[in-house]
């Protein structure tokens, strides 16, 4: 799973896609996932972080994670492999 390479991600939770001119906003959890993806972390590593830091069970996290990734795909922010 790789993010599009040129996305500009700000610490305030704002993504700008220079190839389309679209902007997106994220909540805290979304921002963390996007930053991890940018660093090249995989789903397991991201999951581990959330299970350690947040009061959340594995199923609920995976469910939310999948939904979030589907939205990244929906907005064409994931690189096609």
């Amino acid at each position: 799973m790789k993010l599009k390479p040129k996305l500009a991600i700000s610490d305030s939770g704002f993504i700008f896609d220079p190839s389309t001119g679209e902007s997106y906003s994220l909540n805290e959890e979304g921002l963390i996932i996007v930053q991890f993806l940018k660093e090249g972390k995989n789903e397991e590593e991201i999951k581990e972080h959330f299970l350690n830091e947040y009061d959340i069970d594995e199923t609920t996290f995976s469910r939310s994670y999948l939904d979030f990734i589907s939205m990244l795909k929906h907005f064409n922010l994931i690189e096609h492999e």
Partner: peptide
């Protein structure tokens, strides 16, 4: 104490 988890969300501005 662990943080409260909210579903990650992205939306178009």
């Amino acid at each position: 104490e662990k943080k409260t988890f909210e579903r990650p969300v992205i939306k178009k501005v």
